[in-house]
């Protein structure tokens, strides 16, 4: 499903975004939308905070929405408590789930890197490339 706006963020335990990527083809409006996307995703953390404890599933589906933008969230293990958040306007739930799972694996690989301090920013360009590739594949 191409042409959809999507913004992907990994939020660390302390609510700090450690990875951000604007996905999708609407690169033109990116600049203006960037802060809007952050606002929506940031606000959605409040909902995630509630929802995360009601289910044992990691994939929380769409937890919040703002106008036509939907926030889907995938919560990782409690100790790290990293949240993968995707802001999107498509309804391809299966694709999103697969996307999250794959990115989660990538993220775990990042975590396994002894030089990576958990909770710090993910700067690996390899990771970035992979995430974007996954986004093209699943979203």
């Amino acid at each position: 499903m191409s042409g959809t706006t999507a913004c992907f963020v990994i939020v660390s335990r302390n609510d700090i975004p450690i990875y951000e990527a604007e996905l999708g083809s609407s690169a033109v409006r990116k600049e203006e939308a960037a802060h809007q996307h952050q606002f929506i995703l940031h606000a959605a953390l409040d909902i995630v905070q509630d929802v995360a404890w009601t289910t044992s599933a990691m994939f929380l589906k769409s937890v919040d929405r703002f106008n036509d933008l939907v926030v889907s969230v995938y919560v990782t293990a409690v100790i790290i408590h990293t949240r993968l958040m995707l802001l999107h306007d498509s309804r391809n739930e299966d694709g999103i789930k697969s996307f999250f799972q794959e990115v989660h694996e990538l993220y775990i690989k990042i975590l396994l890197n002894p030089l990576y301090l958990p909770g710090s920013r993910v700067t690996s360009s390899h990771f970035d490339t992979k995430v974007r590739a996954l986004a093209r594949k699943f979203l």
Partner: peptide, 18 residues
């Protein structure tokens, strides 16, 4: 309203203020 909810939803509060 978000601020007053239990637990307070500060981020929503801020977002709606904005």
């Amino acid at each position: 309203c978000y601020l007053l909810s239990d637990p307070p939803m500060l981020r929503k509060y801020a977002f709606h203020l904005v």
